[in-house]
């Protein structure tokens, strides 16, 4: 049986204590554990020493929908809770429902999914495998095995919720040693497989806030081999606003699982905004998305195939919103 390495465990009752504990060497934040535990069992975090669990911290669970339509989801709310909450936009519920498996959605959290570690075929590997290959950059080695010519890590952003939250223009609340701050979720991510979040390791994501979004049409499409369990190997979140004359007044198209961060596709968005929303503009916007992302061969199926699917998935997502 694959087991966890020896660890210390802390379950502070306040966020401030948690922040202080996270400043220690080798401290790792645990929410639902469905990302952390397998990664630890595969010995992906050799410096891990302490798990800081948030289970005792009050007020980290729950969804509030305010009178102006603002949605506040506390970070430890499970994905299953999001799926089942009929007050939430369909896109959010569907994206949460597309994560992993029913059991994992019962334990995995919104915060955990937004901060899910980037993944790579050369990184999320078991023990003997890891020792049989030289370590990659993210595993503490000298080079990236996917793109050996480059000096960056290309591990893949594998969150289903992240592209949707970016498309919905959500903000996240963080608490850290310097207090609380709020940033647009787009700014939470960095296209770097190793330092894929802009928040510091001491900072804790406490809440995600989706502002009023009446009239916004949004959807999420996920590419994966099986209808369950699998991580996305391409995710497309699209949100558009159309006026009475079917002119697109606002568009956000976000790609997941093709880079180390969810990627906005401004080239596609620009095609749509100010123009009539029809098959022709949709096709043009979809085509424009092809050029942006350069997925690599580090998830299931080939990078060529995933690249080819980008315009298809963008077009289908946009068509659904027409």
């Amino acid at each position: 049986m694959l087991r966890l390495p020896p660890l210390r465990y802390e379950a502070p009752s306040t966020l401030e204590e948690a922040v202080a504990l996270l400043a220690e060497d080798g401290a790792l934040l645990a929410a639902g554990g469905s990302d952390l535990v397998p990664n630890l069992k595969r010995r992906q975090y050799p410096t891990a020493r302490t798990i800081v669990s948030l289970r005792r911290v009050a007020d980290l669970v729950g969804i509030r929908v305010e009178s102006d339509g603002t949605i506040r989801i506390a970070a430890l709310t499970t994905l299953a809770t999001v799926v089942e909450d009929s007050r939430l936009p369909k896109v959010l519920r569907e994206a949460a429902g597309a994560v992993a498996s029913p059991q994992i959605r019962n334990q995995g959290t919104v915060g955990g999914n937004l901060c899910v570690d980037t993944r790579c075929d050369w990184l999320n590997v078991p023990d003997t495998w890891r020792q049989a290959a030289e370590p990659c950059l993210k595993a503490g080695g000298e080079m990236c095995w996917v793109a050996p010519a480059k000096k960056d890590c290309w591990a893949v952003s594998s969150s289903d919720l992240a592209p949707v939250m970016v498309a919905l223009g959500a903000e996240v609340q963080l608490i850290g040693p310097d207090g609380r701050r709020s940033i647009p979720i787009e700014q939470l991510y960095r296209n770097d497989g190793m330092a894929y979040l802009t928040k510091t390791t001491e900072e804790i994501l406490t809440e995600v806030v989706i502002g009023p979004h009446a009239g916004l049409r949004a959807t999420y499409r996920k590419l994966r081999r099986r209808g369950s369990i699998d991580f996305p190997i391409l995710g497309v979140a699209a949100a558009v606003r159309l006026d009475d004359a079917d002119i697109c007044t606002e568009a956000r198209i976000v790609l997941g699982a093709v880079a180390s961060a969810p990627l906005r596709v401004p080239t596609s968005e620009e095609v749509l905004v100010g123009r009539t929303y029809n098959a022709e503009t949709i096709a043009e916007a979809a085509e424009a998305a092809r050029k942006l992302a350069r997925p690599l061969n580090n998830t299931d199926l080939t990078s060529r195939y995933r690249t080819r699917m980008i315009p298809v998935f963008v077009r289908r997502a946009l068509e659904e919103l027409g």
Partner: peptide, 30 residues
């Protein structure tokens, strides 16, 4: 039972407060 210990097969499912979860991904302390 257990088939992978990594949350990939579902064989270790138990109910916590009536909800199916994967016991291989759950710390007992939690």
């Amino acid at each position: 039972k257990h088939g992978c210990e990594l949350g990939e097969c579902g064989a270790c499912t138990v109910l916590i407060d009536g909800v199916p979860i994967l016991s291989c991904l759950t710390l007992t302390v939690n």
